[in-house]
Simulated scan of single mutants.
Amino acid sequence: MIIILKPHASKEEAQQLLRQIEAKGLKPLYMPGVERTVLGALGDERVLQSLHLESHPLVDEVKPILSAYKLVSRELYPIDTRVKIGRHAVGGDGFTVIAGPCAVESQAQLDRIADYLTAHPVAAIRGGAFKPRTSPYSFQGLGEEGLKILKTTSERSGLPTVSEVVDASDAELMARYVDCLQIGARNMQNFRLLEAVGKLDIPVLLKRGMCATIEELLLAAEYIVNAGNPKVILCERGIRTYETATRNTLDLNAVAYLKRKTHLPVLVDPSHGTGIRELVIPLTRAAAAVGADGIIVETHTNPAEALSDGHQNLDPQQFDDLMSSLKPFVEAAGRSLK
């Protein structure tokens, strides 16, 4: 429920209403604006109705939140949210580029990649220390050693880090090493993991599940925000369809739809979305054109020798081509590379 107070309502009076809402076992929200103060009340609708807020002398209007997801909805927060990874803000008028290898393989490997990333306006370096793989015989990551490598590279290069957390028990450990936790497609509806990262004060990059609807993605984000962490970035990374020409079908219309429905920033992953490195550049341009807040792409000094997903990693020259050709598309969309 959204409660719009009358213009003369004071902060103290608003706090009194919030206490009444909380006393009923509901979740109160306080959203002061320039002209009006808006309150929110989340919980059992029958309890909400028992408050009879429509007749309260300080209340101008009461509106229900119609969407199943409340906290991440534009109905409640119409202004775009910006989420900081290190000193970089994702969202707003900037276009964010996060890049790096699928997996952290060694200190030398990650440092070499960071060297050419820092020659461009790249916001953060990504790299998996724990790798959830379809086959038990595939490279599973270096674990905590990989996290230490990420930390060292970050300190050396100045780039904040993004890495995937695959188990709730690892969340606090990873938060000590990296600047942003990624939740991958396979874990989008791992609700225990969502609640675990929701209790941490760290940005979370939440990828859409390969068979998930847009509403399911938003409800997964709702779990994190409801647990106490508003620093959520959504990521469209392609969905599984009957098409077999590409690894996944990159659902760019979902990006435009998400920008209408949620205040959270939305990134696109054209690497996993296609699984074909030659398609990464054109689909990155398309992502900028459709309104994405940025991209997360995979790049490697030698994709042929990569221990994970080498076929979709860009080599250094291809990454240079990506960045040089991206600027006009970003500017045409009214943004700037930051």
Rank of each mutant, 00 (worst) to 15 (best):
A9K: 00
Q189N: 15
V268C: 01
E13M: 07
L250C: 12
L307I: 01
G146P: 11
S324G: 07
P203T: 03
S271W: 00
A304R: 06
I65P: 04
L17I: 14
G141D: 00
E13D: 12
P160I: 10
D60W: 13
G294H: 07
L142G: 02
K63I: 09
M31L: 15
L17A: 05
D269V: 03
I224C: 05
A123E: 08
E22G: 14
I21S: 03
A227C: 08
R240T: 14
L258P: 00
P136V: 02
L258Q: 03
L258R: 01
A171T: 15
A114M: 13
R87M: 02
H263Q: 13
H52K: 15
V178L: 11
V330C: 10
Y177M: 06
L76D: 02
I224M: 07
R126H: 11
C235I: 12
Y223I: 05
M210H: 08
M174L: 14
V34G: 09
I21H: 01
L173P: 13
L110E: 03
L42W: 02
I224K: 02
Y257D: 06
D320C: 12
V165E: 07
L219P: 04
P303H: 00
G100T: 07
F319T: 08
R247T: 10
K199T: 06
P57A: 01
S138R: 02
R237I: 04
T37M: 09
P316I: 14
T37H: 03
V165W: 10
Y116W: 07
A123I: 08
G146R: 01
R247W: 09
L250R: 06
H263S: 09
A103H: 12
L58F: 07
R46W: 13
N229Y: 08
D309L: 12
G40M: 02
H56D: 11
T274R: 03
I2F: 07
G91A: 03
A14W: 01
P32H: 10
R285W: 13
T161Y: 05
L264Y: 01
D93W: 05
L48P: 05
R237M: 04
T244A: 15
N226R: 12
L250K: 08
V280F: 06
S138I: 01
L200G: 03
T244H: 15
E298F: 08
I79S: 13
L147F: 00
T274L: 03
A129C: 10
P136T: 03
H272Y: 05
L17M: 13
V232N: 01
V165P: 04
S308C: 12
S325N: 06
I65Q: 05
A171C: 15
I183A: 00
H52S: 15
S336W: 15
S106L: 13
G141L: 04
Y30K: 09
P203N: 03
L206F: 14
L193D: 00
L5T: 13
V166P: 07
P64S: 12
E216F: 09
F139D: 02
A168L: 15
P78M: 06
I281L: 14
V178Q: 05
V104Q: 05
I65K: 05
I79K: 15
L17W: 06
V290E: 03
L252S: 10
F329Y: 15
G86K: 06
Y223M: 04
G184E: 06
D167T: 04
V330A: 09
P121T: 09
G228W: 11
D201R: 07
D201H: 08
P101D: 02
E35C: 09
K148Q: 15
L252T: 06
